[in-house]
Design a protein around this nucleic acid. Structure first.
Lengths: 229, 229
DNA sequence: TGATTGCGTTAAAAAACCGTCACAATATTG
DNA sequence: CAATATTGTGACGGTTTTTTAACGCAATCA
């Protein structure tokens, strides 16, 4: 079952952005513009995770958090707090609010989705997978390890994320732009050709001279990870 | 079987915090908001350990303690008392209440979990492990000794706790922040770079010049203890 | 009390990685 | 087959991240 995420955010532009991006990530997403609405929605259907703005009209984020923690049904729903820089950072650090994680604005979508995955993994193991196998390739997101035919493969951070993304959507072709969005984040600007270079590096790391290349180039379209082998 | 801990605490924020952290530590946790509820729950299922606030509505912590000690089935359930600073400290010290340990608020989570482990170890050997082996490394939490290939390794307190934590979650990558939370405690503030320094010290102590380093650096992610070798 | 030990911070050195470019290699098209 | 478009790759400068050594301070021990 795909995880259901409730986003509580009063600023319209950000809310829309979150909705769009999380949906793209494969989550079911619902929006609430203030704390009151959030509590109503939570009563109707219990989310798997809540992304909660710190400052909210009517009922503040802190208050929502406290109330949720005070009720047995909602006590274990993981919460990720959204805070502006410097906004009571220390109190949040102490996590005495009961949030599971927090993230400081402005943040990148890649970062947020990474946190969401991490929290879901911690709280609801099984919802987000720790390991993926594809043919003779294995990627383990907890130990940060990649193996091919049992032998350990060392990858830099970017190549790791790139392979991770490919492994989550095997067989599918992605354009350079899509890969930049998904792996680098839609907020940074890098040359499209940079993807080529990283795919090249990933290939070099993955393939022993004799082995066949699991990454397929689709001319004038992009790249894909192949499933068989 | 994972130990079952009952937390009796009326202050909501603290109760939630305890619940969250103990669960993260791998215990099964249940909450009770007052002494009466606690006694009911204990009747239903006998905990392996009770964390008990001193001041409680309805039936006080002292009273709960006395009653539990008065009945054969509950006499041996270990109890850790939570007390505010100065709150009858001497009488508690005397342990005439029958508590196995006590801890003064405010306390750090690291400290509490250490006490819990210590008490469980004392009362129920086998529930909490005294020793862990991982490859050629051995850590003994009772005698506070670390060995590699049989030879004794001397570690400072912080490095000991750090290695301890790594050994309990082998293979897993932890960010500097996670390690600070888990090893230093979420309530102290130290620079993230400090983790690097301690990892460095731990490495120096662990590795004879020829040996391979069991601690893996995962660039822009953190550190992990590796299992094989 | 003086000496020792361990801690946390900082700064500089070292290592790893990144993004871009230029050119080579390969595929496509006419 | 030649011309063109697209992709592969090695090199390079610059940046980020990690490692390491040094220092001042506090707690502990003898």
């Amino acid at each position: 079952m795909t995880p259901y995420v409730l986003v509580v955010e009063d600023e319209d532009a950000l809310a829309t952005l979150l909705h769009y991006n999380l949906e793209k990530e494969g989550y079911r997403v619902s929006l609430a513009a203030d704390g009151e609405e959030a509590l109503t929605q939570i009563d109707e259907q219990l989310p798997d995770l809540i992304v909660l703005d710190w400052m909210l009209p009517k009922v503040s984020g802190i208050e929502v958090c406290r109330r949720l923690r005070g009720r047995a049904e909602t006590r274990n729903v993981p919460i990720i707090m959204l805070t502006a820089r410097g906004e009571e950072t220390d109190r949040i650090r102490g996590l005495d609010t009961g949030a599971d994680d927090y993230i400081v604005k402005p943040f990148s979508m890649v970062e947020l989705t990474a946190r969401i995955r991490a929290v879901l993994r911690r709280i609801r193991p099984g919802l987000a997978e720790d390991r993926t196998r594809q043919g003779d390739l294995t990627i383990d997101r907890v130990s940060h390890r990649v193996k091919r035919e049992g032998r350990e493969i060392h990858l830099g951070p970017t190549e790791f994320r790139l392979l991770d993304y490919f492994m989550q959507h095997p067989g599918r072709v992605f354009s350079r732009e899509q890969l930049l969005d998904a792996v680098w984040g839609s907020d940074v600007y890098v040359e499209a050709r940079t993807v080529d270079v990283h795919v090249g590096r990933l290939r070099k790391a993955l393939n022993l001279d004799t082995e066949i290349d699991p990454i397929r180039t689709v001319r004038s379209a992009g790249y894909a990870l192949d499933i068989d082998s």
